[in-house]
């Protein structure tokens, strides 16, 4: 059984093997520890000169990666917890993402920042957030998030191959999930389509005409899928499920195709509700599809509590998605 973690780890191994310009840098990456979530496990043993363990200096990690990228290397930086992307904000917004355009296309900044995001592990207010929304819409930056669908490792390789900076958002709970295949397990009742190159989207179509369209990304597809099954089995409500891996720039064309059928959009994300990914998706959908009704399921606008019942109450749950879908 291949997990999302295996897929990402193998991708990094093959990328380092095939490209001597590829460097990996971040905190606590060296074996035998191999990174806080083990995504970089084994790399420092095989490629000791190109795996750079760093001090706790997120701004310098990103700045160094930017300089390396400007001068011919292909850096992949790890930010140990996605919560710490606040510490790289200046480097991302005012340096890495800006240089290509600001310098009149005379330079390229091909770097990847990997950031494990997300809660549901009881890590509390500063180690559980989904802060990617702060980076959506930053000109020159791509934000990409794998899910258990498709090939997360291939997605990471596509991010590495990109000529522009990419923030690669990995939800922590995804790491141990097995890769999902169409037609297997609880996906058996859905038809799977995908498109979009090199950062694919996935469309799961139910066995009967859909009443609504659910849009999501990353780990929250797991919740959306569970909710879709419950809605189908217990309420005879069928959903189109749209799963994006490219969050920004926004390209929602496949979503619009589904919405012209359903006229009902439900977005699901783990970041806080206000000004989140779903807000932009909804705004663009309303601008494009007439007669649209919208619901958003997201985290409450609160810090994430440590206590499990509180954390559960703050983060979106399957029941919230079911309730929102039934509220149309």
């Amino acid at each position: 059984m291949t997990t999302v973690l295996d897929s990402l780890n193998s991708a990094l191994h093959s990328a380092m093997e095939s490209d001597p310009r590829l460097y990996v840098l971040g905190e606590d990456l060296l074996d035998p520890y191999g990174g806080a979530f083990k995504v970089t496990r084994g790399l420092s043993t095989r490629f000791p000169e190109r795996v750079l363990t760093t001090p706790i200096s997120e701004a310098a990690i990103l700045g160094a990666a930017t300089g390396m990228a400007l001068r011919g290397l292909r850096p992949v930086a790890e930010i140990m917890f996605g919560d710490f992307v606040t510490l790289i904000a200046d480097q991302v917004v005012n340096h890495a993402a800006k240089f290509r355009w600001m310098y009149n296309d005379q330079v390229r900044v091909p770097l990847v920042v990997r950031a494990p995001m997300g809660g549901r592990r009881g890590y509390g207010p500063t180690h559980s957030q989904s802060l990617e929304k702060m980076f959506l819409g930053v000109p020159g930056l791509k934000v990409i998030a794998p899910s258990a669908l498709g090939d997360p490792g291939a997605l990471l390789l596509a991010a590495i191959a990109d000529e522009d900076p990419v923030l690669f958002v990995e939800h922590k709970l995804l790491y141990t999930r097995p890769l999902l295949q169409a037609g297997q397990g609880d996906l058996a009742d859905f038809a799977l389509e995908s498109g979009g190159d090199p950062f694919p989207y996935f469309v799961l179509r139910p066995p009967a005409p859909p009443r609504l369209t659910v849009a999501t990304y990353g780990y929250n597809f797991e919740l959306a899928r569970a909710a879709a099954l419950e809605l189908m089995m217990e309420h005879e409500i069928f959903c189109d499920l749209l799963v994006f891996s490219q969050l920004s720039p926004f390209d929602l064309t496949p979503l619009f195709a589904s919405l012209t059928q359903t006229r009902r959009l439900l977005t699901v994300e783990e970041g806080t509700l206000t000004l989140g990914w779903g807000a932009e998706v909804a705004a663009r959908a309303v601008e494009t599809v007439s007669g649209l009704q919208v619901r958003r399921v997201a985290a409450r606008d609160l810090p994430i509590a440590n206590s499990r019942p509180l954390e559960d109450a703050i983060l979106p749950q399957v029941a919230d998605i079911v309730a929102a879908a039934r509220s149309f």
Binding site: A59, A60, I61, L62, G63, A64, A65, T66, G67, M68, A69, L70, R71, G72, L73, P75, D90, Q91, N94, H95
Partner: peptide, 13 residues
């Protein structure tokens, strides 16, 4: 903010 970028350039060279 330019200093870590310069450090990364130096690393690349």
């Amino acid at each position: 903010g330019i200093v870590p970028v310069a450090a990364g350039m130096a690393l690349a060279e």
